[in-house]
Amino acid sequence: MYKVIRFLELMWIVIAACCIIIGTFKLITLGFMDALFFYVFCILAVFLFLLRRRQRRNIEKHESEN
């Protein structure tokens, strides 16, 4: 279970990094409106990363108490 949650946690941070890179490229080449989608998705990916990290920490804390 820990491996799946950790994998999803890392996946979201990698997606966020890719969105920043692609969004910056789109911003430079095409303009802000074309890059906006990638920046919004980056914010969503960071939020989901933080959510998964909190979930993993809660599970680890619960397991260590037992």
Rank of each mutant, 00 (worst) to 15 (best):
W12A: 07
L44W: 14
S64K: 11
D34A: 08
I21F: 12
I22H: 02
L27G: 04
Y2F: 09
E65V: 08
T29L: 03
M1Q: 03
I20Q: 07
E65N: 10
V14H: 03
L48C: 08
E63K: 04
E65Y: 08
V40T: 12
Y2Q: 07
V46G: 03
T24C: 04
F7S: 07
E60G: 01
I43S: 15
A45P: 01
G23C: 06
A16C: 05
C42H: 02
E63I: 10
F25I: 15
V40L: 12
V46D: 04
K61P: 00
R53Q: 11
V40N: 04
S64A: 14
S64D: 07
F37W: 07
H62K: 12
I15E: 02
L48S: 09
L8G: 12
Y39R: 08
A17S: 14
R52H: 11
I20N: 07
I22T: 12
R54K: 12
C18T: 10
F37R: 07
G23H: 02
R54A: 12
V14R: 05
I21V: 15
I20G: 05
L27Y: 14
K61Q: 06
C19P: 00
R6G: 00
R53E: 12
F47A: 10
E63G: 00
T29S: 10
I15G: 00
E9L: 07
F32Y: 09
L30I: 05
F7Y: 11
H62V: 05
I43Q: 05
L8F: 08
M11Y: 08
K61A: 14
Q55E: 14
E65W: 03
F41H: 05
A45G: 06
I20S: 10
A17C: 09
A17L: 12
S64P: 00
F38R: 01
I59L: 13
G23Y: 03
F32A: 08
D34V: 10
W12C: 13
L48V: 09
I59V: 13
W12V: 00
I22L: 12
G31A: 06
F38I: 04
E9R: 11
E60A: 08
L8P: 00
R57A: 08
I15P: 01
L10W: 13
A16L: 06
H62M: 11
L27F: 14
L8E: 13
V46Q: 03
E9T: 12
L50S: 08
I59M: 10
M11T: 07
L27H: 04
C18L: 15
F37K: 06
T24H: 02
M33K: 04
L44P: 02
I43G: 11
F41Y: 13
R54Y: 13
L30Y: 10
F38S: 14
E60F: 01
W12K: 07
A17Y: 04
F38E: 15
Y2D: 13
I15H: 01
I15N: 03
M33T: 04
S64N: 09
M11F: 08
E60T: 02
L8T: 01
R56A: 14
F47C: 03
L8S: 07
D34G: 01
A17M: 10
K61N: 15
I59P: 00
A16S: 13
L8M: 06
A45M: 05
I21R: 02
K3A: 12
K26A: 09
I59Y: 09
L50T: 07
V40W: 02
L36G: 00
A35D: 12
R56V: 01
